[in-house]
Amino acid sequence: SEFSSRSGYGEYVQQTLQPGMRVRMLDDYEEISAGDEGEFRQSNNGIPPVQVFWQSTGRTYWVHWHMLEILGP
């Protein structure tokens, strides 16, 4: 990996993601499973900070930056 740390990767995702971009989950996290795909909606200063609309659940759920792989527009 070109990223030395999880936080470095998270910063990359945070700087790159734009609303509407497709993402894939890298880790299991509460209701969301690794491999689930969705659409980035928004972020804020909460914890976790990233709101994604997940195809698997049909609704939005908040996750962490480093848990997401960017699939593209």
Rank of each mutant, 00 (worst) to 15 (best):
S1F: 12
E2D: 13
E2F: 15
E2I: 15
S4L: 07
S4E: 09
S5K: 15
R6L: 11
R6H: 11
R6F: 11
S7Y: 13
S7L: 13
S7N: 14
G8V: 13
G10E: 07
G10A: 14
G10H: 05
V13Q: 01
V13F: 02
Q14H: 05
Q15E: 04
T16K: 13
L17I: 11
L17S: 06
L17P: 02
Q18D: 07
G20V: 04
G20W: 07
G20A: 04
G20I: 00
M21A: 08
R22M: 09
R22F: 02
R24M: 04
R24S: 06
M25A: 11
M25L: 11
D27L: 13
D27A: 13
D27F: 14
D27R: 12
D28Y: 05
D28Q: 06
Y29D: 02
Y29I: 07
E30S: 03
E31Y: 00
E31W: 08
E31A: 10
E31R: 09
I32E: 00
I32T: 01
I32P: 02
S33A: 15
A34N: 09
A34V: 05
G35Q: 03
D36M: 09
D36C: 08
E37V: 12
G38P: 09
G38W: 00
E39C: 14
E39N: 03
E39Y: 04
E39L: 10
E39A: 04
E39H: 04
F40S: 04
F40R: 08
R41V: 14
R41K: 15
R41N: 09
Q42E: 12
S43M: 10
S43H: 04
N44A: 14
N45L: 09
G46Y: 05
I47T: 14
I47R: 10
I47N: 15
P48Y: 13
P48M: 10
P48N: 02
P49Y: 06
V50E: 07
V52K: 05
V52C: 15
V52Y: 01
W54Q: 00
Q55Y: 14
S56F: 10
S56L: 02
T57H: 13
T57F: 01
T60K: 03
Y61P: 01
Y61M: 14
Y61S: 15
W62K: 07
V63C: 02
H64S: 01
H64L: 01
W65H: 05
H66D: 13
H66W: 08
H66N: 07
M67Y: 08
E69G: 05
I70L: 04
I70G: 05
I70R: 04
L71G: 01
G72V: 07
P73T: 08
